[in-house]
Amino acid sequence: MKHMQHFNRHCLQLLYISVMAWAVSGCSLLPTESFNFQAELPENFTISATTYYDAASGESCPGHKVVKSEQPKGTQLIELKLPLTERVKGCSRVLKSVVLNIKGQWGKRDLDMSLQKGVLSIRDEPTETTRPFPASGPLVFQGQCQWLFRTSGPNRVIRKILQCRALDANGVVQKRLVGGSMLREGLAGRTVKLVLTEAKEEEPYFDRYWIKTTSGWKPCKGNWGRDIEELCVSPPQFKTFKMPDGRDCTVYPNCTE
């Protein structure tokens, strides 16, 4: 009889331990609230998302947590699941912003690239710029990336700088960076999509340093005597420059007139 009582107590202990282990495991497997981020990109562009978390209301957590999510190479349509909350060392944190790291490749070499950022902000209260969620489908932010060219160094070699700006509902380029703000309420489980396009024509990085002709853009020679292009004078004088492949040119992008 005593043996049976001992056996029953042992079984109950094992059962209790199993239930507690299942409960703990179950809690650890409970899904964290998140939203889906999608990005539709031009060719030769990549993107990564850096998420920033701050202390939840009523808690004091020093600093913030940063998580990077990288895009698989060669993918023009990506999707990332971004958590809205994080718990680190017993401290609850909520997502405040997502910095979008946009990389464009303009040439064959690894150095022939340029970086630009965008920002998605998560608001607890609506503002004039906060975008409402549609009844169905993703919340879409649109942007356009523009390549700006200039010369660099004593040989005046062409380099390109990436500039990505938001588009309004009518497709007009804005001064602000790609992205925008949205409400935290209702964000869980929804999809936020960034659609990036590439401007058809490149433009000079410096305003009034190049003159557009029927053959292409020509870099000016000014009064400062510098190696790179200068502010155009009247009548304009022009400089030669080099393409990244080493060609000596007089107009961009056609090289020769």
Rank of each mutant, 00 (worst) to 15 (best):
R208T: 06
E229G: 13
C11S: 06
P236Y: 08
P62Y: 07
P126C: 05
S25V: 07
V192K: 12
R176S: 04
G225V: 05
V99N: 00
E202T: 04
R176G: 04
W210G: 04
W217H: 03
K81N: 12
V24E: 14
V94M: 04
N254V: 01
R159N: 13
F35S: 01
V99W: 04
V19P: 00
C91H: 07
S136G: 11
I122N: 02
G179I: 02
N101I: 07
N8M: 07
E125L: 13
K73V: 12
W224C: 10
W106S: 05
S121Y: 12
T256Y: 10
R190Y: 04
V173R: 07
S60T: 15
T127C: 02
G107Y: 04
E79W: 15
G104L: 03
G90L: 00
K96L: 04
H6F: 10
Y53E: 03
L15Q: 08
L30K: 04
V98P: 08
T32N: 10
T191A: 11
A21N: 13
N170H: 10
V19L: 12
R87P: 01
L100S: 03
S28A: 11
H64F: 06
S25K: 08
Q71K: 06
K2D: 14
L14T: 11
Q38N: 13
K96Y: 12
I102Q: 07
G153S: 04
R93P: 10
W22A: 08
G179F: 05
L148S: 06
M20C: 02
Q71N: 09
Y205K: 12
T240S: 08
F37Q: 01
P219N: 06
C91Q: 09
V99L: 15
P253M: 01
L80V: 15
Q237M: 14
H64P: 01
G104C: 03
L80A: 07
P31V: 08
I78H: 09
N155Y: 14
Q144T: 11
G246V: 02
D112M: 15
E40A: 15
M20D: 02
F238P: 01
E230K: 10
F238V: 03
Q105M: 02
V119Y: 11
N101Q: 10
G179K: 05
L139S: 03
T213P: 03
K221W: 06
R247V: 05
V172P: 00
D110T: 09
S92D: 13
L15A: 15
D54N: 14
T256P: 01
T250E: 11
F149G: 05
L196G: 02
E40T: 11
T151G: 11
S136Y: 08
Q38A: 09
F241C: 01
T32L: 15
M182N: 00
K239H: 08
K200I: 12
T129D: 11
G118W: 06
V178W: 00
D245F: 06
R150W: 03
L14C: 12
P62F: 13
C220A: 13
E43D: 11
E203Q: 07
R9K: 09
S215C: 09
D54W: 09
S25Q: 14
K117I: 08
K239Y: 07
P72L: 05
D168E: 12
